[in-house]
Simulated assay, not measured.
Amino acid sequence: MNIKTLEYFIKLAETLNFTKAANECFIVQTAMSRQISSLEEELGVILFKRDTRSVELTDVGKEFYWHALKMVADHAHALERINLVSQNHASSLRIGIGPYEQALLQPILKRFVSENPNTLILIEQYNYERLARYFQEGHYDMMVCINHCADRVRDSETKVVYNGPWGIICSTDNPLHRKEEIADSDLKDQTLINMSEYNINEYKADMTKRFATSKFIYVNSISGKLLLVGSNLGVAWIPEFISNQLPPDIKYFRMKSQVSRYFVCAYQPDRLTNPALEQLIQLM
């Protein structure tokens, strides 16, 4: 078994199409078939159900998929560690974050870097759906995210890093900005601007019930939220820890009734062999 064969297996498991998987791996279809058959023979199991019309993962194949992702990620991590040592870096950390977490992580990371100047920090930012998938595939030592994102990941441990209030933001051109505080009933008939990675139907049902509104706009970044709110196209939820970074034409209100959303750092226990990761978790 080699890494390249595992990569072929992963690609076929994700596409369920020999031709497409072969094209994306830049090999011919017959070579892809040989690699998969060789892997099945080596493991002594059937990974795919296949006939002339379809390809499906077997139950064993579904289980092996997660192990294959980890083996490929561990291989990449080992190569990275070797390169770091050759470049005189003591250690490295790969961290994934979602749309909000930059403001949450920055003061913690600033302290960590001051104490660990030879640790290489690599940061990637994605929406929560992609972030959870990449973390599950082993791309990161840690991800900092909203709780529902971490709930999607198997075999990870979490530590709460923020469990504070959320609030509503609106433009200073919106009549709501004159209020001292906002209740749920004040948002009736307001357009709610929301991140698109949530379950949209579930979100709409919840918000319609709570605020008696049926108008929604979906964006994929906090910048998109601020742009539309600042243009007075609607109101939006944000965690309070980013309220001090708002432009002057946007006002923040802490809601009378709170939402149960919080932020965590998530990590795989087997990555705790990296002392830099363990130290950063302690600072969270």
Results as ranks from 00 to 15, higher is better:
1 M>G: 10
5 T>K: 09
6 L>S: 05
7 E>V: 03
8 Y>H: 15
11 K>T: 15
11 K>S: 10
13 A>L: 04
19 T>M: 06
21 A>M: 02
23 N>H: 07
24 E>R: 07
26 F>A: 12
29 Q>G: 01
29 Q>I: 11
31 A>Q: 13
31 A>N: 10
32 M>I: 09
34 R>N: 11
37 S>T: 13
37 S>A: 12
38 S>N: 14
42 E>R: 00
42 E>M: 06
50 R>Q: 13
50 R>M: 07
52 T>V: 11
54 S>T: 12
56 E>L: 14
60 V>W: 05
65 Y>L: 14
66 W>D: 12
67 H>P: 00
70 K>D: 15
75 H>N: 12
76 A>Q: 15
79 L>D: 14
80 E>W: 12
83 N>S: 15
92 S>H: 10
93 L>V: 02
94 R>A: 09
106 Q>R: 05
107 P>D: 04
109 L>Q: 01
113 V>N: 03
114 S>M: 13
115 E>R: 14
118 N>W: 03
120 L>F: 12
121 I>A: 00
129 E>M: 00
130 R>V: 12
135 F>D: 03
136 Q>H: 10
138 G>T: 04
138 G>R: 03
140 Y>L: 09
140 Y>F: 15
141 D>L: 05
142 M>N: 05
147 N>L: 01
150 A>P: 04
157 E>W: 07
160 V>F: 09
162 Y>K: 07
162 Y>C: 06
162 Y>L: 03
165 P>R: 15
170 C>G: 06
171 S>L: 02
172 T>I: 14
172 T>P: 02
173 D>V: 01
175 P>L: 04
177 H>Q: 13
177 H>N: 14
178 R>A: 13
179 K>M: 12
180 E>G: 10
182 I>P: 00
183 A>K: 12
184 D>E: 08
185 S>G: 01
185 S>Q: 13
186 D>M: 03
186 D>V: 04
188 K>M: 07
192 L>K: 01
192 L>A: 06
192 L>W: 10
194 N>A: 13
196 S>T: 11
198 Y>C: 02
199 N>K: 08
200 I>L: 11
205 A>R: 14
206 D>W: 03
209 K>G: 05
213 T>L: 00
217 I>N: 00
217 I>S: 00
217 I>G: 01
222 I>K: 08
223 S>E: 14
225 K>M: 12
230 G>I: 03
232 N>S: 10
236 A>G: 03
238 I>L: 08
241 F>V: 02
242 I>T: 12
243 S>D: 05
243 S>L: 04
249 D>A: 05
249 D>Q: 12
250 I>G: 01
252 Y>M: 05
253 F>A: 07
261 R>P: 00
265 C>V: 14
266 A>V: 08
267 Y>E: 03
273 T>V: 11
282 Q>C: 06
